[in-house]
Design a protein around this nucleic acid. Structure first.
Length: 246
DNA sequence: CGAATTTGACCGGCGC
DNA sequence: GCGCCGGTCAAATTCG
């Protein structure tokens, strides 16, 4: 699927806040040389690979703001009202709005805390103490609970839209499709992908904009625990690009 | 034949 | 409590 990406005609691309009713905030323009997305308004080269690993420095697992400059810029806005259970994070960068991120209030808790608390505590809502507990075995119960928590805790997300003929852009990572869903009031299905790397829980969603089917909306969730899976020559460079941007 | 995709079932959250 | 909806699972199917 990624092999067809080189044919993509990407004229314009902007990062936007997914929660604002899909309304794009135009924040810049991308051209799309195959395998190397350029963010023109930044005045620098920024690969899509780097974009796809954006959340890696946001530190969803941290109670405190990460130390990178951009994150420090972003984090204070986490305290915005959580009407939609998501905090809107936008940032001005070089005079133009570059990106917006989402982060659920639940993300303010760390995964480690959640899980360890789950494993150790007796605190519970009643159904945890039901008599199945003994019969099922503790580990089964724990796993069930961990799973439930995982559902609840949202990884940091960001999304951007792209004018593209192809749905799935080559971002350097390998993805496996695990679902597709027709969402309400849209004629185009939404596809769900997971990073194929073991222990990497990053997911992405791909859908077409209802108002303009030429536009592809890509939403990344989570952070990669590895570098892009192919293109050996690229695997060395993204880190400093990431640091510049994030 | 293993990997990847498809697709209906299932689950949990949310609003009423 | 119920129904709707988005997200995920997993068996079946297709692909390379």
């Amino acid at each position: 699927m990624t092999s067809t990406t080189s044919q993509a005609m990407l004229n314009q691309q902007g990062l936007f806040d997914q929660n604002q009713d899909q309304a794009p905030i135009q924040m810049g323009f991308f051209s799309y040389p195959p395998n190397n997305l350029t963010f023109s308004s930044l005045g620098c080269q920024q690969s899509l690979k780097a974009l796809s690993s954006l959340p890696s420095s946001l530190g969803s697992d941290d109670h405190h703001a990460p130390s990178t400059n951009l994150s420090e810029t972003l984090i204070p806005s986490l305290n915005t009202p959580l009407k939609h259970r998501e905090a809107h994070i936008t940032s001005d960068f070089g005079g133009s709005q570059l990106l917006s991120l989402q982060r659920s209030s639940a993300n303010l808790w760390s995964w480690g805390d959640q899980v360890s608390e789950c494993l150790s505590s007796k605190r519970s809502s009643g159904d945890i103490h039901d008599h199945h507990h003994v019969g099922l075995g503790v580990s089964a119960m724990k796993m069930k609970k961990i799973k439930a928590i995982r559902r609840k805790v949202r990884e940091p997300r960001f999304c951007f839209k792209t004018m593209s003929e192809v749905d799935v852009l080559d971002d350097g990572y390998k993805w496996r499709k695990y679902g597709q869903k027709v969402v309400k009031n849209t004629q185009h299905p939404r596809s769900y992908y997971r990073c194929t790397m073991d222990n990497c829980r990053v997911k992405k969603r791909v859908e077409r904009l209802a108002e303009d089917p030429r536009m592809v909306i890509t939403t990344y969730e989570g952070r990669h625990v590895h570098s892009p899976s192919h293109d050996l020559e690229d695997s060395q460079s993204p880190s400093h690009l990431n640091n510049f941007f994030w």
